[in-house]
């Protein structure tokens, strides 16, 4: 990364010359990845347990990132390289559509609206939307949200969901989960809503806050690719299935979610 941006002016020129005219939908992402022996993944950088930037080395770390690394090896072989681009809930779809990344594995729920413009693999993780509140909060479930302020993140479908479940709640959208969590701590809202896995990650970092009310939606996370890249989604599905059979999948679940208090990680095991 660091070395690369020295080359930027040159790179820009080359990209300008070579990039023009290529239509993304005509190219097979899978073939390109095999040729380059690299898959470029869009991952999160602000979500503990799934994709969080580590201050030690500036790398993204989490379940999604490990999944991406393993899937890459399954598709390209042991020498295959996985590259990572940090995305946010807001930027992941534009970056995918624009071809900045080959695939997105970033706590992204498979939804009918999204399926209209991009394709998904089969679900690789089953989350559900829930609420994070201070331990002394009176909010027990989504029923108590009317008239309250709920914090969400720009680009997350949890914002749309909460508007349906609690139409009289006021919803504010922040840029990422770090801002959202701090806004909750600053009493800018009464609850933070998103998928339970993300919320448990935040609860681990922030004693005094807990996940409440169980899940009120089903959020199957999928690997997203551009429309028409069925060879890639099939390869991902096959890789995930292989990982489930040889226990890799469960080891990753245990690695990331085994120590999370209150999270029944064994329910996520797949065989």
């Amino acid at each position: 990364m660091k070395k690369k941006f020295w080359l930027f002016p040159l790179l820009a020129c080359i990209l300008m010359l070579t990039g023009c005219g290529k239509s993304l939908s005509d190219q097979s992402v899978l073939n390109n990845a095999k040729q380059a022996n690299t898959i470029v993944w869009g991952v999160k950088g602000d979500v503990k347990l799934f994709g969080l930037i580590d201050v030690k080395d500036g790398q993204q770390k989490g379940f999604d990132v490990d999944m991406a690394k393993h899937i890459t090896k399954h598709i390209l072989g042991p020498q295959g390289k996985a590259e990572f681009v940090t995305t946010t809930s807001q930027s992941r779809i534009p970056l995918l559509k624009n071809g900045n990344v080959d695939a997105v594995i970033a706590t992204m729920s498979i939804t009918p609206e999204r399926k209209k413009i991009i394709s998904f693999s089969k679900s690789y993780f089953d989350a559900g939307q829930s609420l994070l509140v201070p331990k002394d909060s009176s909010i027990k479930s989504t029923k108590d949200l009317n008239g309250k302020t709920v914090i969400g993140v720009v680009g997350a479908n949890s914002v749309e969901n909460i508007k349906k479940v609690a139409p009289r709640a006021k919803v504010i959208e922040l840029q990422d989960y770090a801002q959202a969590m701090n806004a909750l701590k600053s009493h800018q809202g009464d609850a933070l809503t998103t998928d339970n896995g993300i919320l448990f990650g935040l609860a681990v970092q922030n004693p005094g806050y807990e996940v409440r009310g169980g899940t009120f939606t089903v959020e199957p996370y999928g690997v997203a690719v551009n429309k028409g890249q069925t060879s890639f989604t099939e390869a991902v599905d096959k890789a995930v299935l292989e990982m489930q059979h040889d226990g890799e999948y469960n080891r990753l679940i245990k690695k990331w979610f085994g120590d999370v208090p209150g999270f029944k990680y064994k329910e996520l095991y797949r065989r």
């Binding site: 807001q90 779809i93 959208e173």
Partner: peptide, 11 residues
């Protein structure tokens, strides 16, 4: 704009 861009996907 952010909110519209992320609901329409038409950035």
């Amino acid at each position: 704009a952010n909110s519209i861009a992320s609901t329409t996907f038409d950035t």
